[in-house]
Computed example of a mutant assay.
Amino acid sequence: MFKMKSKSTLLLMLLGAVVGSLGVTSASAEKARIVNTGKHVDNLIHKVDIRNLSYFDTRFDYSSKPYKMSQNRYQTYKLKRSLKIANMNKHKEVILPKGSVVTGLNDGKGNITYISNPSLSLKNQKLVFKTLGNWHGSLPIIKNNGGAQQPYTRNTAFSYKSSAMLPFLSVKSNKPFYDAEGLSLPFVSISADSQLIYHTKGSKYKPTRYAKIKKFKLTHSAITYYLAKPVKGVATKKVRSGKTHLYRATFKMGHVFQMMFADNDTDGYSLTVNNGRQEFFISLYQLGWKYVGSIVGLTGADAVSPTDAKIATDYVQGLY
Results as ranks from 00 to 15, higher is better:
30 E>A: 11
21 S>Q: 08
83 L>N: 00
112 I>K: 00
211 A>D: 04
188 V>C: 09
108 G>Y: 08
317 Q>I: 04
70 S>K: 15
53 L>R: 06
156 T>A: 03
210 Y>L: 12
218 L>E: 10
42 D>I: 11
228 A>D: 01
142 I>P: 07
162 S>A: 05
8 S>I: 05
276 G>V: 05
160 Y>V: 02
197 I>P: 05
107 D>C: 04
140 P>V: 08
211 A>E: 05
218 L>F: 09
97 P>V: 03
29 A>W: 01
263 D>H: 15
234 V>M: 03
206 K>G: 00
68 K>Q: 13
68 K>D: 12
86 A>R: 09
73 R>H: 03
20 G>N: 11
297 G>N: 02
185 L>N: 01
36 N>Y: 15
281 F>T: 06
40 H>L: 10
219 T>I: 14
124 N>E: 12
10 L>Q: 10
191 S>M: 01
233 G>L: 03
71 Q>H: 10
76 T>K: 04
2 F>I: 07
279 E>Q: 15
223 I>G: 01
148 A>N: 06
107 D>H: 01
188 V>H: 02
80 K>W: 13
155 N>F: 10
248 R>L: 06
109 K>R: 13
272 T>R: 13
245 H>W: 12
116 S>M: 13
8 S>D: 08
118 P>Q: 05
175 K>S: 14
259 M>I: 07
214 K>V: 09
35 V>E: 15
308 D>I: 15
77 Y>F: 11
225 Y>K: 00
115 I>R: 01
73 R>V: 06
97 P>N: 12
66 P>W: 03
281 F>V: 08
59 R>S: 11
177 F>Y: 14
214 K>L: 14
107 D>P: 09
253 M>V: 09
207 P>M: 05
234 V>D: 00
101 V>A: 03
312 A>N: 04
167 P>L: 02
211 A>H: 00
308 D>N: 15
2 F>T: 04
24 V>I: 09
108 G>L: 10
66 P>S: 04
305 S>C: 13
207 P>W: 10
310 K>I: 10
217 K>V: 02
287 L>W: 02
80 K>M: 07
241 S>G: 14
236 T>V: 11
136 H>Q: 12
61 D>R: 05
148 A>K: 00
285 Y>D: 13
18 V>R: 11
17 A>Y: 05
90 K>C: 09
215 K>P: 03
77 Y>E: 00
171 V>Q: 04
197 I>R: 05
283 S>M: 04
48 V>N: 00
159 S>E: 04
20 G>R: 01
128 V>P: 06
133 G>M: 08
199 H>I: 06
244 T>H: 01
23 G>W: 03
180 A>M: 15
204 K>C: 10
121 S>E: 07
223 I>L: 05
124 N>V: 02
198 Y>D: 10
172 K>A: 08
231 V>G: 06
302 D>E: 06
140 P>R: 01
193 D>S: 02
21 S>T: 12
166 L>M: 11
260 M>P: 02
248 R>V: 10
37 T>D: 08
4 M>T: 01
240 R>P: 08
224 T>V: 12
253 M>T: 12
196 L>W: 06
